[in-house]
Design a protein around this nucleic acid. Structure first.
Lengths: 333, 333
DNA sequence: ATTGTAAATGTAACCGTTTACAAATTACCA
DNA sequence: TGGTAATTTGTAAACGGTTACATTTACAAT
């Protein structure tokens, strides 16, 4: 910057102004500085700026893993909106581990992240402490919970699971099974199971523990899950899966075992991945507009940083998409 | 840091030493500083450190999109290894657009990225200039090319496409089709098509232009691609797809059109995604160990930054996985 | 001319580290 | 015991920007 200044024959303050707010310069100055900047290929030193401004212009994103397209699209949308507003995105992975998540959070704080996008509402208590003591703005995503003390943007996981269950109840099903993702430190997974539970409870139907199997989010695991359920003394006629990947496996396994989908068993998931409409018989699922969550999260963070008051909790609407994988309950045999 | 120093009754230099190299402190000092650090919950200010050290401890990753699990796993591996060595990862998306990629690169330079992981070997010429003029270490990934002037880590895209083609040639196929991803500014896609081309040429077989269709990487597009190929006056008996997603669509469409896979048409892809082994009849594909690329890229960047000489180009081996979607060529009717 | 005001530009302090160098302490040996 | 070397700790100068404040300049109003 000193070089630019001396080449243009101005002070470094003028160069700084040219970079940040060219309007305040006289046209003459502006032209001179511009030439110098261009000639020298000057690029502002971000760390120095961050130090001076006490703002790094970086947003941290901590997600469990990156192998799910829905989640990936959320991060992509965040990145895009941040970038368009002069913010960079620091990516960190928590692997569904609250301690690791806390560690990653510390790293991002050290890196100077001005804001943080988290996933879910369940975090290490020290994480909240840390963020609040440093006044770092953050938002929980994928979850919508107006009652939470922490800002959040996302879906009503319980509600959408209930909707899926109700859809199947309407089709006459009474024997339900669930292939959930691991619920350990994943409140989204928990809430989805709970949503099913409640929908059934309202009709006086039980959801016995053995009808809920927990499996990692992989196709092969979805197969195993379905197999387990169908080997039960009384197998379910409707299976709700923690996401489309598990549902994919469930459908394949059902077909492999000789069951007709949806004739013998209905199967549904969450996400509406690319192929959900393509795989016969078409997967009934809940479409989750994850990019919208990413965009809203970015907007929340940047606007809050800019001093604007933003809604504490905002719900992103989901859509139940009925396709061929769910149908009327089979007649009792 | 000043606070920590005064609370511990030492100089700030001592605190700095405690953070960076505790061994050099006397046990007494170490204990005192440690207490103070803990009591105050001190976390080092990354920007100040970056400014002082002229090193940000951040690695930038520019990838086209994030919606492909293979690519995602590469970034995840990069992130993990970087994190384990005290480096953060800045994520940027280029959307297969060289100009946007250059822009993102500038942003990352401004953010202070010490190193950069790029994808492919085809970039805006200014990008290379920029990186070299600033002495930013970088590495092209997913491509392996010892002849390239730029460091790279990845696969022999041409070679693996050839292997797939040879596998199909061995099965007696002579009528080939290709559903490629968009080749515009994607050298990986180009090389894969070229690999097929060469394998055929070696046997004196042509690959007419109308037998190569270009489609975005989506299942529905794969379907369209296959439909286009099968509607040709002389449809192919073997179809090589740009990746597994396209292959997924191709298989579904073939089955929907009443063709038997592999009886009437053999189909293969690249990636070996999670479900490639699950979807009947099982997808023949080339397994790409993308996490390994991410790890090696991280290692290359960090070691180079540490002053170690690293190999200019390193190939990551791929594996041809034969499954049910490829079989003997149908008898000529 | 003189003065006042607004706009353009410059000066210099500050942001929070690291680290070369200086100073102080300790250890060791003759 | 003094001297030297090795170890530990402190001092202060960068690092490269931003910005409050001071200064200069231009111009209008008196």
């Amino acid at each position: 910057m000193r070089d630019v200044a001396s080449r243009a024959g101005v002070s470094i303050a003028t160069v700084s102004r040219f970079i940040n707010d060219p309007e305040t310069l006289s046209p003459d100055m502006r032209a001179r500085v511009e030439d110098a900047v261009r000639a020298l290929g000057y690029i502002r030193h971000g760390a120095a700026r961050a130090l001076s401004m006490r703002r790094s212009h970086a947003i941290g994103a901590i997600i469990p893993t990156v192998d799910n397209p829905t989640r990936a699209s959320k991060v992509a949308a965040l990145q895009k909106h941040c970038r368009e507003n002069g913010y960079n995105v620091l990516l960190a992975l928590s692997e569904y581990d609250l301690d690791l998540e806390l560690q990653q959070c510390r790293n991002l704080v050290e890196a100077g992240a001005d804001g943080l996008m988290l996933e879910g509402g369940l975090h290490h208590p020290e994480l909240y402490e840390l963020l609040e003591s440093r006044n770092i703005v953050f938002v929980n995503t994928i979850v919508y919970d107006p009652a939470s003390p922490y800002p959040n943007i996302g879906f009503d996981n319980r509600g959408m699971a209930r909707r899926l269950a109700e859809h199947l109840l309407d089709l006459g099903h009474t024997e339900f099974g669930v292939i959930s993702g691991p619920r350990g430190s994943n409140d989204r997974a928990r809430e989805r199971v709970e949503g099913v539970h409640r929908a059934l409870a309202k009709k006086g139907l039980p959801l016995p523990a053995e009808r809920v199997v927990e499996r990692p989010y992989r196709v092969a695991e979805g197969r195993l899950g379905l197999k387990t359920l169908m080997e039960l003394p009384s197998p379910p006629t409707a299976v709700i899966c923690g996401n489309d990947v598990l549902a994919f496996g469930a459908i394949l396994e059902a077909q492999a075992l000789g069951y007709d989908v949806p004739g013998d068993v209905s199967i549904a998931g969450f996400d509406d991945l690319d192929w959900a409409s393509q795989l016969p018989p078409g997967l009934t699922t809940i479409a989750l507009p994850a990019p919208k969550v990413g965009l809203l999260a970015a907007r929340y963070l940047l606007e809050t940083l800019a001093g604007k008051a933003m809604p504490h909790a905002t719900e992103v609407e989901v859509r139940l998409i009925r396709r061929g994988s769910t149908g009327p309950a089979p007649k009792r045999g």
